[in-house]
Design a protein around this nucleic acid. Structure first.
Lengths: 122, 122
DNA sequence: CAATTAGTTCAATAAATATTGAACATTGGA
DNA sequence: TCCAATGTTCAATATTTATTGAACTAATTG
C-alpha cells in the first residue's frame, strides 16, 4: 500500500509548534543536516540519522517534525525518505526557516551537530 | 542597592534556548507586546503583563526570557523595567528575531495574544 | 515605623516531553 | 516461504517544564 503518514497542510503549520520543534537539539540537528543536502533536492532516509540516537527515539522526533509541518515523509518500499518543506514554510512564515538555518549554520561548531551518514541514492 | 539580575552576554546567547523560549505561548506573547512598544524605546514593567498570568508564573517566564538573553531587566525602585535585547539578538543571529516577530505579527489573531495594559510612564 | 506596592523565591503539584527496549508491521530478496 | 532490513508503536520510566499559592524581600509612602 505505501500510505504516506498524515501531514499538516501549509496553513495548518503553527508558529509555536514550529519553534518548539526546532528548539530541540536532536531535531535541530536533523533539520540542519536535511538543509545541507536539500539544495540538491536530495531526500534523506531515517536510517541516515542512526548516529544521532536510537531508532525508536528518532521515530519519535521524526513524527514531531512531520506533525509540525517541518518535513515531508515519503514511503518507498521499506524506507522513508524525508525532505524539508522549504516552500511551505517560507510561504507560511517568510524568511523564518532561512534565518533559523543561517543561525544554526553560524553556530554549527558550538552546537556540535552530528553528521548523518548518507547511504541513500537519489 | 538596586542590583540588576544576571544577564547572559551577547555571545552567551544560545540558539536552542532562544527558540525554546519563544516557543512558549505566554513568552511569545510577552515578547510580541514588548516588540510593539519597543520601537519608541519604551520599556514595559512586569505589572503591565498581569493580565497574562499570575504574578509568580510571570516571574518564572520573565526569568526564562532574561536567562535566554531575550530581554534586559532594569530595576528602578520597586519596579522592573524590561526591554527586548534587539541589538544583541540581531548581532548574534541576524534577522532571526525579526523573522519571528514578523511571523508572530502575521499570526497575531490566530495566536490570540493578550494585550498588556501599560501603566508605566517613560 | 507600619502599611502598601512590586515582584521574587520556594515548595508542591501538574502536565508535557523525551528516552528506552521490546514487540510489531511491512517490504524485498534469497 | 522464510529471512533480513527498515521503521513504527506501545508501555514504562525519566526528565523537564509549567503552574499555583504562600511566604518573603526591598523600596516607597503616610
Amino acid at each position: 500500500m505505501s500510505r504516506t503518514p498524515p501531514h499538516p497542510t501549509r496553513d495548518q503549520i503553527e508558529l509555536p509548534l514550529l519553534l518548539d520543534c526546532l528548539s530541540d537539539p536532536t531535531r535541530l540537528a536533523i533539520v540542519y543536516n536535511l538543509s545541507r543536502h536539500d539544495p540538491a533536492a536530495t531526500e534523506l532516509r531515517c536510517g541516515d540519522f542512526n548516529a544521532f540516537s536510537g531508532k525508536s527515539n528518532l521515530a519519535y522526533h521524526f513524527a514531531k517534525l512531520r506533525e509540525a509541518g517541518v518535513i515531508q515523509t515519503r514511503i518507498a518500499g521499506t524506507t522513508r525518505y524525508m525532505k524539508l518543506r522549504r516552500k511551505d514554510l517560507d510561504a507560511r512564515f517568510p524568511g523564518l526557516l532561512d534565518a533559523i538555518l543561517k543561525s544554526a549554520t553560524r553556530d554549527a561548531e558550538r552546537l556540535q551537530f552530528p553528521e548523518c551518514e548518507v547511504v541513500s541514492a537519489a
